[in-house]
Simulated scan of single mutants.
Amino acid sequence: MHGPAQAAWLLVALCAAAGAYCLLRMRSRIEEQRRTAGGDALMGFGMAVMAVPAAVIAPPRWAWLAYTAVFGAAALRAVWAARTDRHHLHHLIGAFAMVYMSVAMLTAPGAHAGHGGAGVPPLTGALLLYFTGYVLWSGARLAPRPPAPARGGPSAGAPGGPPPLGWGDRPEVALACRVSMGIGMLAMLLTL
């Protein structure tokens, strides 16, 4: 990816941290967390590696081919998994965006694939719109809500109630990771 080196290193750190947290989520007691954590971890680490400034490491041509193959396989897996879990559609679009960026770097390092002049290529524009919408929608879901009124049932951690959530099981932290990776995807698409 091309752009200021400091911004690239911040993106590397953000995506690597999100990927590491998603690896921890793979050990969650909550099945929903485990189902999506692997795809999120792959996306986080893949984005971190792709965001390393080209001035530091100029990936050889085969690296972009490997990226295309890995994220192409992730997209196929996401198509299969999307039959039962709607979140995998987001993984599908994310994997497709990674394939698109890999192909762009493979065909024309330093330029957009299919970029014939001024303006943004239509596919890049569509991906930018999707990830902008995803970040705004997911970010709004992170906004605090007033607590639900107590219904007289046992509370979390109380005898007979559900056990308290561990820090790796918190859905709001997983959502925050997805928001940060969505912002990272926007940054990568803008600097492609």
Rank of each mutant, 00 (worst) to 15 (best):
R141L: 02
P154L: 10
A156S: 13
M105E: 10
L24H: 08
Q6H: 13
L92Y: 11
A150F: 10
L23T: 05
M181S: 01
V52Y: 10
M50K: 00
D85P: 09
G46K: 12
M43S: 07
V103K: 12
A58K: 00
E172N: 03
G153S: 15
W137H: 07
H87Q: 12
M47N: 12
G94N: 03
P4L: 00
G94R: 09
A75P: 08
L192N: 02
P171L: 12
E32K: 14
V79M: 08
R27P: 07
A58Q: 10
G139P: 11
P163E: 00
P154I: 15
R83H: 00
Y100W: 11
G125M: 01
P154K: 14
A8H: 03
A18H: 09
A108Y: 01
G19E: 13
L136I: 08
C22V: 13
H87K: 02
I93C: 08
F71L: 12
A48P: 12
A140G: 15
P164I: 04
G38T: 06
W137M: 12
P121T: 07
P159I: 09
A126E: 00
L190I: 02
A55D: 06
E31V: 06
G116S: 14
A54T: 14
F71Q: 11
G110V: 09
P121W: 10
Y134D: 01
Y67H: 06
G39P: 00
S138A: 07
R141S: 15
H87M: 06
P149K: 02
G3Y: 01
A16M: 02
A111V: 08
M1C: 03
L65T: 12
A111M: 08
P4D: 01
M1F: 07
Y130S: 07
